[in-house]
Each structure stands twice: as structure tokens, then as C-alpha cells.
Simulated scan of single mutants.
Amino acid sequence: MGTSSRARGDRTVIAIGTLLALGTGIWLVAHGAETTAPPQPSAAQGFSAASSGAGPPAGPAARPLPVSGPVRVTVPSVGIDAPLTGLGLAANGSLAAPPEKDTNLAGWYAAGTAPGARGTALIAGHVDNHAGPAVFYRLGSVQKNHTIEIRREDGRTALFTVDAVEVYQGDDFPDDKVYGPAARPELRLITCGGGFDEATQEYLGNVVVFAHLTGSKGP
């Protein structure tokens, strides 16, 4: 993919107050009772009250890996297994979305932290498109302690353990908590969620999976 040369350290900078448009919901409206809305995380999968206002809690983590671009994301527990493409920023400063037509393609913020390196790495994917469910449709069913695997250009697979799964509504999206720098290797998976407004045909928020590096496999 030729992206590893652009991913150096923790350079995650995203505009404040951004709601990521990673789904259309149009198929929900078109098919009505024949469809099932994307799963949403329960309160039990979120951070504890003690840490809810801050970033993820500090804790044991594997040593950072050398910088290398990611090529694939897998969450075995919910059947997510997709290639990755590099993403930049949209005109309004928000994280750009992956191509909508490819239902099994996610994207990573290629100007920020590479997954496995020290800092906060970002991966985004659509929950659906006009035709139906897409790559991160089942992201809301991920649970604490599930494993996320990121295959990299250097042949290694970075292994992340899920710390929490939360859903944020509209303007309540906590940019600093989601995008902010980290002292250890961390990962965020992001998609649309938080319910669907049929009047505006828009999702009301975003589902975010928080995870940190706990190991690796491969050369």
C-alpha cells in the first residue's frame, strides 16, 4: 500500500466536534420490518464511571512495535475480516470515510499512528451502505477483552485487547478521549451508531471500540 513511510509516531490530529458519517441507513428505511438495525453496545461494555470522563485507563501493554502500515483488520469474535486502505481528512477536518461502495473495506488514518506503534491509531468503516450491511455492521456487538488483529506490511500481526465499547450521540462525541495521544500503543475502531433518524435519514452518533496492544505474532 505504500503508506508506512507516512506514519511516524503519534500524529493523530482531527477536528473538534466531528461526527463521522460512516453509514446511510437508507436500506433500513427502504426495507422496514424486513431489516435489523446494527447492534449497539450495552452500558456494561463501556468504561466505568470513574474513567468515563477521561481517556482510557493506563495499564499493562506490550512494547510498541516498529512503524509499519496496516493491511487488514480482523475481529474474530464478531466475524469482521477486511482489508484496509489509507484515509486522510475531509474538507471540514473530520476523518474521511472509506469508499462507500466496497462493503468489506475499512480505512486507517494514514497521517497518524500506525497500529502497533506508540500512540492512538484510528480505523473507520461503514456500518452500511445503500445496499445493506457493510464492514463494521457488527462492531457494536464487540465486547470487553475481545481480540482485534491488525496484519501489517512487515508481516507481523499486532494483537489488541478491547478495553471498552461506547456509543456517543452527535455533538457529545468526545474528540480528546477518542483521538487524543496515548503513551502506549492504542487503537480505535469507529463506525456509525446511536440510533437512526428516519426523518433526516442519518445515524445519530458513533460507536467506538477502545483497545490497546497486548502482543504480536509473526516475524
Rank of each mutant, 00 (worst) to 15 (best):
L19Q: 14
G170V: 12
T147I: 12
Y179L: 06
F196N: 01
V208F: 09
V167C: 07
T85W: 00
G55H: 06
G9F: 14
A182Y: 03
F210G: 00
F210Q: 00
K101P: 01
D163W: 04
T12W: 03
T36A: 12
P98N: 04
A7R: 11
I148H: 05
P181E: 06
S5K: 12
I150V: 15
F210Y: 13
L105E: 06
G155P: 07
G193W: 05
H212W: 14
G180F: 09
G170S: 15
A124V: 05
D81R: 13
T103N: 11
V167Q: 11
V162Y: 01
P76F: 11
T85Y: 02
H212Q: 03
L84P: 00
G53H: 00
I190Q: 02
V73L: 15
V73R: 06
N92S: 14
L20D: 08
A182W: 02
A30C: 08
L213C: 09
L87C: 12
V162P: 04
C192H: 04
V127S: 00
A131L: 10
T3Y: 14
G205E: 02
P219D: 07
A49V: 03
S5H: 15
V165T: 06
E202Y: 03
F47P: 05
P38Q: 04
G125T: 01
A21D: 05
V73D: 07
I190M: 08
G9Q: 14
R118G: 11
A199H: 11
M1V: 10
G9R: 11
Y203A: 02
